[in-house]
Design a protein around this nucleic acid. Structure first.
Lengths: 202, 202
DNA sequence: TGTACATCAGTGAACGCGCGTTCACTGATGTAC
DNA sequence: TGTACATCAGTGAACGCGCGTTCACTGATGTAC
């Protein structure tokens, strides 16, 4: 890396840092690109040179904390706990995390989770990681005989991810609902998914 | 209703009609409030008097078709088909419907499904209807002995709705994926949810 | 029923604001020889 | 190693655009008496 490239990367980092600070502090609507540039000690034109638009800047600025959350949660997974508890560990942690700044993360998720994938590479990679994580967990349970051998693991992982998305939607749509109530509901849904709702007489 | 109120309602209807036409034609970003006003034969200021903002106008303008879709699908439900087929009838129909203008409805859903509920009363009511619909279906299956009596119906309905949301997210996030592939995946998830993934030896 | 006033939907024009673009320029850094 | 030129990150200022707000106004309709 050149000195030139290094200084470019440095500016970029400063802008991201400033953006993270101001976004968390004031929310997306109440902080302008100009303010972010000022905080970073750069010009507004420079921000636009580095990031396609405000959303892209936001995605990258907030992604750091989100990735950190995922890593922390992966590391703290209670390996010997029952499957349901293990399945709930990450979503529970994320809901708690998003609860720390519910409105900001609502806007963040809203602008990423339904966007075409190539526009939000960071969140795409993260969802993928989480789904892979779920797959591995279920695959493991297959080996220990707790999960039926004929189960399609990728479908099961997608289902669990969907249940999490559903809980997330409720979480953001009803801002006054306590996070514990959401995780409680998600636990119930996950439990139902594990055992199924129909009688054996299929 | 007064003549005054009637004419107000008429203007409102004209604006909604114009908005629907232009939104479907050009998408949200490519049509301005001014254009919509012009098409409706009203002034831009008048649009703002009637609707809080562009999103609110969009919600109401597009809602008509969505409600119609739900009603049509409810009416055409194959009553005697197996549960899985009945459960898939409405989501399948909606995915097909959204596929007719994938980008427009992506933006529409993005701006409603994670918004605080009171800001999107129309879509809120519609989700509620669909969930109630699911509840009734499951409750019925309980009576006919196909669904376990101990199942919490509202949790099951929320789960099925979540699976649909998950499919919807994939549908919008991967614009090139054909709608049949999405419904196929959703069917697999729903099927798994019905039977469960764990062995009986709980 | 008529009059005099109040109400209110809609208008048109101006404005503020933030995002994003453009452009000519500076000055530091990199490169070819 | 030195020189002469090319490259490029960043600047500052101006601009276009669309959303949303504001305001004084018009003219039709409603209401009180």
């Amino acid at each position: 890396m050149n000195r030139r490239q290094a200084s470019k990367a440095e500016t970029r980092k400063l802008i991201l840092k400033a953006a993270r600070k101001l976004l968390v502090q004031k929310g997306k609507e109440d902080c302008t690109l100009k303010e972010i540039a000022e905080e970073a000690g750069a010009s507004a034109a420079s921000v636009v040179v580095h990031f396609k638009n405000k959303i892209a800047l936001m995605e990258e600025a907030l992604y750091v904390d989100i990735e950190k959350t995922l890593i922390d949660l992966s590391d703290s997974l209670p390996i010997n706990a029952p499957l349901l508890e293990r399945l709930m560990h990450i979503p529970k942690g994320f809901l708690r995390f998003y609860d720390s700044n519910r409105n900001l993360y609502r806007i963040f998720i809203k602008n990423t989770i339904l966007q075409p994938m190539e526009e939000t590479p960071f969140i795409a990679r993260q969802s993928e990681q989480y789904i892979k994580y779920l797959s591995i967990m279920i695959e493991g349970e297959k080996k220990s005989g707790f999960v039926k051998p004929e189960v399609d693991v990728s479908i099961a992982a997608a289902s669990l991810f969907s249940l999490y998305l559903g809980a997330l939607a409720t979480f953001f749509r009803i801002p006054e609902m306590p996070v514990e109530m959401i995780t409680h509901g998600l636990t119930a849904m996950t439990q139902q998914f594990l055992v199924g709702i129909t009688c054996e007489v299929l």
